[in-house]
Simulated assay, not measured.
Amino acid sequence: MKLFQQKTQVHKFKNSKEFIEEFKICKSDFILTSKSAYDTYFKSLGLDAHVEYKSKYGTGEPNDIMMDKLLDDFSKTNCTRIIAIGGGAVIDMAKLLVLKDGKKSSDLFQKKVPLEKIRELIAVPTTCGAGSEVSNISIAEITEMNTKFGLAVDELFPDYAVLIPELLLELPYSFFATSAIDALIHAIESFVSPKASIYTEIFSTKAIEMILNGFQQIVLNGKDYRFDIIEDFLIASDLAGIAFGNAGTGAVHALSYPLSGVYHVTHGEANYQFFIEVFKAYNRLSPDGKLAKINMLLSEIMNCKVSEVYEKMEELLNKIITRKSLREYGMKEYEINSFADSVLDSQQRLLNQSYIKLNKEEIVNIYRTLY
């Protein structure tokens, strides 16, 4: 049984100029990025590369329509290397460009066509949450199905992950908060996954410690203190990405996808909605085993009793950014059942990677509690 793999080389640079020089960016390179990131950190470097901005393809999280247009644009170039500079959305979109004959993204996500990697990918994160720069997963909304899909195949592993802390200095606080919470969820879900191993636990544990300690410091010192420790969050997100790239995520992600698909809630924020309540359900249903182990770890970091872990965690995260109710996003009460059905119909991969597999009644109860 395979326990662990790490296919992506991880590099760190002080600034963008060092990265450009080391990787010799040239005219055969295709850069997908956000205009703000490119203008702030790369435009002055005068790169001789093909550059496209994510905003050309749409706003918000990736969907199949956006990805199809990107695939079409890329097919008209002669570029041989892909460079993704952005958050999880940008990196997830760029991952499809490494595949041979990629034309219709929904076919790729549903594995209706062969998946063959023929191009190199360099992933440069500008947030501290997705971990996409070291994972083999791309996530997109399939519009005709009104839900998100995750394509998890080794062909999507980036060849290089490049960490440049200065790229996060312009990240608005709300995006910092939800992306860092997303990284925390990656680390904790992968820790309790049935696919976890002693190797992935090491990455998960360190990421959890770094993120929670960082949050506690921000609560004590104010929001701007994040800039003093931003490198810690960037590295922690990368560690969590390595962990979930091997062990996977679970029910938190599964329950978040219909909310993201229907109401276009960003990935990290949607995951935040379900994080505590899913783990409270785990704790009620099966408090022993790996959950007992993670609860002990969390109690040590949070300096609280094991029985208080989720209450104290909820308090801390709400001091970082307030969690909304589901109805505040526009969700209707009658959608509770249809969302649960959507999870059961389309997210079996994630449900099977959960600490325990939740049934419809348990999923409905979680939605209803959060509504």
Rank of each mutant, 00 (worst) to 15 (best):
L171V: 06
A240W: 04
S204P: 08
A243Q: 07
N303V: 12
S346R: 12
D64E: 11
S105G: 09
I211S: 06
V51M: 12
D182R: 08
A281M: 15
S256D: 01
F19S: 04
S346F: 15
S193P: 03
K305G: 07
D232Y: 08
R368Q: 15
I142A: 07
M302T: 01
A196F: 02
V192D: 00
D224L: 13
E311G: 02
L32G: 10
Q216V: 05
R349Q: 13
M145Q: 13
K305S: 15
K206I: 14
N337Q: 11
S179Q: 01
F203L: 08
P114E: 06
N365H: 11
N146Q: 14
L169S: 12
L171S: 08
I301G: 01
L163Q: 06
F23A: 07
G150R: 10
I188N: 01
V162C: 09
T40S: 13
A247P: 01
I164P: 05
L370D: 03
G58S: 12
Y371A: 09
K148N: 14
I139C: 10
E361M: 10
S132E: 05
T80S: 14
I363H: 06
A187I: 00
K104T: 15
I188A: 00
K2E: 13
L151E: 04
N271F: 07
Q353G: 07
D68A: 03
